[in-house]
């Protein structure tokens, strides 16, 4: 159940793959929507850590257009609710995440991504 909050924090970490290695691109995904408890403090704390463009782009690719292109300066309840939905309630159950740079495919099965590197990819 890779959630977009996780996706927003993971970059390709293969050896010498240092630029254009984020965000990973979802491929052949199978989605599921599951409700999660809303905690506005948690989201507010987390907000500064988000790469906004990557989040919006990925949400659009997955068919969710509830977030504005630019991160709003004013944070209201409706915005937090939408953000909560995008970050925590969209789950990717199967598929893969592909590095835009080195094309490493990190497969997802049963909601658990395999981020292990191959022998030639570790430092």
């Amino acid at each position: 159940m890779v959630r977009l909050v996780t996706h927003n924090l993971l970059a390709c970490h293969a050896k010498d793959c240092n630029t254009n290695n984020f965000p990973l691109v979802f491929q052949n995904v199978q989605l599921e929507i599951r409700e999660a408890e809303f905690n506005s403090d948690f989201i507010r704390n987390f907000l500064p850590k988000i790469e906004w463009n990557a989040l919006v782009k990925t949400a659009y690719e997955l068919g969710d257009t509830s977030l504005p292109q630019d991160q709003p300066e004013m944070v209201d309840d409706e915005f937090l609710k939408n953000l909560h939905h995008v970050l925590f309630e969209i789950h990717i159950i199967e598929g893969g995440m592909v590095c835009p740079n080195c094309k490493h495919n990190y497969p997802i099965s049963d909601g658990i991504p395999n981020m292990l590197l191959a022998e030639h990819e570790i430092a």
């Binding site: 927003n8 984020f22 658990i112 395999n114 981020m115 292990l116």
Partner: peptide, 13 residues
Amino acid sequence: DLCTFDVTNNPWR
């Protein structure tokens, strides 16, 4: 989330 990786080769951005 749960994630398979080696913590010495981790993907944290």
